[in-house]
Design a protein around this nucleic acid. Structure first.
Lengths: 139, 139
DNA sequence: AGCCCGATATCGTAATATTCGATATCGTGG
DNA sequence: CCACGATATCGAATATTACGATATCGGGCT
């Protein structure tokens, strides 16, 4: 009954599958998975630097830059200097960006609620513990 | 202390991070993440169709086809007809493919062992339960 | 037998994603 | 004030993924 030999293979499959489901529900926004991911991480309204966003999404700075290029072109974000450190760039949501991010967050929350409602409470804790352990594995 | 508001965002970040770690350890094979994923799923030696591989990796058939194109060019797999159903294509590992897949599986297993050794036994069960629930969410 | 429909995989095309190396700018500590 | 690390971007290349169209095939229906 083991769904997979490997936790990592299961992780990747689940990521792809849920990404497709999320993209289907948010097709009207005309955004790609990476853009949705970035907006979801910005949805709380707190400004972030490119590096912080890279850590949050698990991507490299150059990748984040290209995603932000498209988000900026679509008018969803603005870039500005960080006060006190003009190397860093602060990413902030625009009005339309905030609306899109809110839609994303609601869809995200709804999908998770439907999926995890009937689940054992400890399962979610174990889920996060495994993710944490996988990300901190000593190389 | 909650690592993330959203299980899905945590999922995506963990996937990216672990993919980078895995790619680093397997850099000598000269394979990309998608190719590694495909070979890992084929590592048990059982032949699979393109569709089965798509389900296992969570990708669409066209995506699998292009990944297989590269694996075939590298001499890691062969394609042949499935006896009794010539629509389907059976993917099988070659000699070099089997060696690469074995290396991948060992690296995968080692990485998971290092990461999950000190973890509560129930955590892994919860992890798989959450993944299962997320993939089966009613649309 | 003949036919239509769904399943399977591939192809062409295009848009995205990702990476690498190089570069410009900026803080910080000697 | 100077060297070094941090930060982000750019240019070029490759990989990834998707969509629609196409070819082939199995199976059921008449």
């Amino acid at each position: 009954m083991s769904p997979d030999q490997s936790a990592l293979l299961a992780l990747q499959r689940a990521t792809h599958v849920t990404l497709h489901a999320l993209g289907r529900e948010l097709a009207s926004l005309g955004l790609t998975a990476a853009e949705i991911n970035a907006l979801a991480n910005l949805a709380d309204g707190r400004a972030r630097t490119v590096s912080e966003l890279g850590v949050a999404t698990g991507s490299r700075p150059t990748t984040v830059t290209s995603v932000l290029d498209r988000l900026e072109r679509h008018g969803h974000i603005t870039r500005g200097p960080r006060p006190g450190d003009r190397r860093a760039v602060l990413i902030e949501l625009t009005g339309t960006g905030r609306r899109a991010a809110a839609t994303i967050q609601q869809t995200l929350a709804g999908l998770e609620r439907r999926a995890l409602a009937d689940l054992d409470p400890g399962a979610l804790a174990g889920f996060h513990a495994v993710l944490q352990a996988l990300m901190e594995v000593p190389s």
